[in-house]
Simulated scan of single mutants.
Amino acid sequence: MLRFLIRRTSGAALILLLISAFTFFMYFAIPQDPATLACGKNCTKAALDIIHKNLGLDDPVPVQYWHYLVGIFAGRDFPVGHCDAPCFGVSFRNNQMVWDTMMDRLPLTVSLTVGGLVVFLIAGLGAGLMAARFRGTWLDKLFSGASLVTSSFQIYFLGPIVLGIFVYSTGWLDKPKYTPITENPGAWFAGLLIPWVVMATIFTANYTRMARSSMIEQLQEEHVRAARAKGMSSRYVFFRYAWRGSLIPIITIIGMDIAALLSGGMVTELTFGLAGFGRLAIESVTNKDLPVLMGVMLISAAFIIICNVVVDALYAVIDPRVRLS
Score class of each variant (00 low, 15 high):
162 V>R: 04
114 V>T: 10
209 R>P: 12
138 W>E: 06
14 L>Q: 09
164 G>V: 14
206 N>P: 00
192 L>K: 08
90 V>F: 05
68 Y>R: 00
191 G>D: 09
11 G>L: 04
5 L>M: 13
74 A>I: 01
118 V>T: 13
306 I>W: 10
26 M>T: 13
281 A>G: 14
277 F>T: 00
77 D>P: 09
261 L>E: 05
91 S>M: 04
298 L>N: 07
47 A>V: 13
150 T>S: 14
180 P>K: 06
88 F>D: 04
267 V>L: 05
210 M>E: 12
290 L>H: 02
55 L>D: 10
52 H>F: 05
56 G>N: 05
320 P>I: 07
15 I>A: 11
271 T>S: 06
181 I>P: 02
9 T>P: 05
98 V>I: 05
283 E>N: 08
264 G>E: 00
199 M>P: 04
255 G>A: 00
125 L>C: 13
43 C>F: 02
185 P>K: 11
122 I>G: 02
216 I>K: 04
101 T>H: 00
277 F>N: 00
12 A>F: 07
294 M>E: 12
93 R>V: 07
261 L>C: 02
201 T>L: 08
278 G>C: 02
196 W>M: 06
151 S>E: 15
20 S>C: 15
315 Y>H: 12
166 F>N: 03
161 I>C: 08
150 T>N: 10
152 S>Y: 00
259 A>C: 06
140 D>I: 07
255 G>Y: 04
